[in-house]
């Protein structure tokens, strides 16, 4: 008999930790975007890239079972994108994302958006090394989706309620939906927006810029700390000569 007590996802979590460190060292802010198919993820990404403008470097990793249609839409919006086709797989894992990062080679201080496979179940369990999981829910879906797919809403730090320009045509109750999400995850942050009408996009863009700034500061502090160490060592070396 052998006692091992190893987490089944430990291999994935190891790769995720490597990705997280790699991103941190470069001041890159990374988000893992998860949703059902058809929630408008790719449209939202394209609009986000457009609104951030050419001053902000954005890179995109696209996960789909098949085709590179989404990566092409993102490239058309002006951001370097790489498509991962998961084939039979229903989610991205940290190893795939690590390999994609090597190929994509995002610049320091940039924004990395990982669009996961459209699926509210499996991606919940797989850490990719991102700063936050963002669950995207469109108002054409049900208010009870957070209750139907609780693992995903528990794993996400942010919920984006999209397509709000359609609310006047629908019976969707925004308050009930948010209450449902908070039943699963009392701390979830909620933003409401429409990539089509532009409503609420400013808050989303502001939040992204703020978080990117934090990621850049973490890198700068680390660089400053290392420089101090070098200076201290140089000092010691001088004293011995």
């Amino acid at each position: 008999m052998v006692k091992i007590e190893q987490d089944i996802l430990s291999k994935n979590d190891g790769y995720a930790a490597q990705n997280r460190q790699w991103l941190r060292d470069r001041g890159i802010f990374a988000l893992n975007l998860v949703s059902s198919p058809g929630s408008g993820k790719t449209t939202l990404l394209a609009e986000t890239i457009r609104q951030l403008g050419s001053d902000t470097l954005v890179y995109v990793v696209e996960g789909d079972q098949q085709t590179s249609n989404d990566a092409e839409r993102i490239r058309a919006a002006g951001a370097p994108a790489i498509q991962i086709n998961t084939g039979k797989g229903c989610h991205l894992d940290a190893h795939m994302v690590g390999q994609a990062l090597e190929q994509l080679n995002p610049a320091d201080d940039s924004l990395l958006l990982i669009e996961n496979v459209g699926n509210l179940v499996c991606p919940a369990a797989f850490d990719l090394g991102e700063a936050h999981k963002v669950a995207i829910l469109s108002v054409t879906e049900g208010e009870d989706k957070p209750l139907k797919y609780p693992d995903m809403f528990a794993a996400a730090d942010i919920m984006l309620l999209t397509k709000i320009d359609l609310l006047r045509h629908l019976d969707f109750d925004v308050d009930v939906c948010i209450a449902n999400a908070r039943r699963i995850n009392p701390k979830i942050k909620v933003l409401q927006l429409s990539s089509k009408s532009g409503d609420g996009m400013d808050l989303w863009i502001d939040w992204l810029l703020l978080e990117m700034n934090d990621a850049q500061l973490v890198k700068q502090r680390e660089v400053a700390r290392l420089r101090q160490q070098i200076a201290a060592l140089e000092q010691q070396l001088q004293e011995r000569r």
Binding site: E5, D7, L147, P150, D151, R183, P186
Partner: peptide, 24 residues
């Protein structure tokens, strides 16, 4: 995940255990 607190009936419950998967 969406259970209410069995004591107060509110939904401010954070999961602290029972979400693990291990080979023991």
């Amino acid at each position: 995940r969406f259970d209410a607190c069995p004591l107060c009936g509110k939904h401010q419950v954070q999961v602290t255990g029972g979400d693990e998967m291990r080979v023991s």
